[in-house]
Amino acid sequence: MTAVTARETAVPAADIRKRGRFLVAITILILSVWVLAPIYLLAINALSSPAQVNAFPKSLVPGMETESIAFFLGFAGVLRALGNSILVAGITMVLAIGLGAPAGYALSRFDFRGKDAFRIMVLMTRAFPLPLLALPLAVMFIRTGLDDTAFGLALVHTTLALPFAVLITFSLFSGIPVELEEAAWTLGCTRFQAFHKVVLPLVLPGIAASAVFAFVISWNEVFAAAVLTIQNRTLTAFLLQNINVSPMHLKFAGGAMLVLPALIFIFAVRRYLFAMWGIASR
């Protein structure tokens, strides 16, 4: 026993700590490579010519050719699908924030009967596989003429994004002290003026972040998009529909096209990611 302790103390504590830190750094590096490497491999494929994509064995550096991308963009229906994706995601974003932010504000500022019931309804949406909504809605949309339209699909995507928008804006508004609003009232503001002049400027960046989040949710959704659109395919629906028949280089260029905006958006809202989930997960 004594011998062991003696030997242990012989190694300076600083050394052990240094070794530990080195181990942690290596682990973090490995995990980062695990996340990044697959994206890099996709990028190689997207930036190689079709011939290079189908060649074997593959090289680990991209051919820096734009041929695959050009082929993809020139492929019949792609640009239209891209436009549809943006349109649907844009409508979703506006609807989710437009409907969600007032609810989030109400939840954060008022105590009223039925508040818990509403919260439960919002939380309940989490326990349901929401893309399945597309099935009954497909029928409903045919009746109302919303079938195969960007707006119809955006409505379904809004049910996906709305609960998030409510919870995120709830946490954003809760982060603004109520006293700021009250101070504005005592200084001559109506409720609306106080909201407009004090609350809105303070939450705007956060609202923008949650809007981006809503956009990404819609941009990435596959199942409902595939069920609800036929002529007006979104990019995800288009890729899914053609996945068994399209050549490899088309798939990879399409995949890259899907990933790129998402990467940029997540980067833009990264500061809010954790604040949003901190409350949204309660």
Partner: peptide, 14 residues
């Protein structure tokens, strides 16, 4: 958190 923004379809393709 990058994969957070990546759709399941894109992940499948990757």
């Amino acid at each position: 958190t990058i994969p957070l923004g990546i759709s399941d379809l894109a992940a499948g393709i990757i």
